[in-house]
């Protein structure tokens, strides 16, 4: 019967980040089982769901906005989610992802695929490949963000705190309890 009760619909999205924040999420370990009972995971790189759904209660977004796909995804996340959390330092400040900003995308592609590569590759140009934006930017510089979960990556305890508070219907006081960079 309990299946009939609508559980909070939670999603996670992965933009320009190293996936470390998601690894930290997986490090919730046995708490994942508890979480599974309490929420419905409706979209995530760790679940095989193709489309970002409508009507999501909470979305955690890892990574900076670095290419056109990230940009599109960020807008979709905002449109379809009630509460958006910038998940980790790359989403919050640009962090490591934004270190490439001193170079142009063309310089970066040339250096990566030809100058530094052991084998000389052609610079990929297929239209299905995401296009780098001139600069990687923090999530809140593109869309409205409701809360910031800091850290590179946030620890499982910090993630657990944020999610548990939201499940209890409270806005997590991340600014006072867990403000940190790096």
């Amino acid at each position: 019967m309990s299946e009939k009760i609508q559980k909070p619909r939670v999603a996670t999205a992965w933009l320009g980040g190293c996936s470390g924040c998601h690894m930290s999420f997986l490090d919730l370990d046995e708490r994942l089982i508890e979480l599974h009972d309490k929420i419905e995971l409706v979209y995530s790189p760790i679940a095989d769901i193709k489309e970002f759904p409508r009507n999501v209660d909470v979305t955690l977004v890892e990574g900076a906005v670095s290419n056109d796909e990230n940009e599109e995804m960020a807008h979709l996340v905002r449109k379809n989610s009630r509460f958006v959390i910038a998940f980790g330092d790359c989403a919050t400040t640009g962090n490591v992802t934004a270190m490439r900003n001193r170079f142009t995308p063309e310089e970066l592609m040339r250096r990566t695929y030809t100058e530094l590569a052991e084998e000389k590759f052609a610079i990929p140009s297929d239209s299905i490949i995401a296009k780098m934006l001139p600069k990687a930017i923090a999530l809140h510089h593109l869309i409205r963000v409701d809360a910031f979960l800091h850290g590179c990556p946030p620890t499982p305890d910090e993630i657990w705190f944020a999610i548990s508070e939201l499940l209890e219907g409270r806005i997590p006081k991340l600014a006072t309890a867990y403000l940190r960079y790096g």
Binding site: H140, F148, L179, R180, Y181, G182
Partner: peptide, 28 residues
């Protein structure tokens, strides 16, 4: 500036970082 605390030599021992916490800088 270009502050990337995660890869900085003074991460966790930085006066600027501590000030950011002290003044409650949640995002820029």
């Amino acid at each position: 500036g270009n502050h990337v605390c995660a890869v900085c030599v003074v991460n966790n021992h930085c006066e600027l970082q501590n000030l950011a916490y002290e003044v409650g800088l949640v995002r820029v």
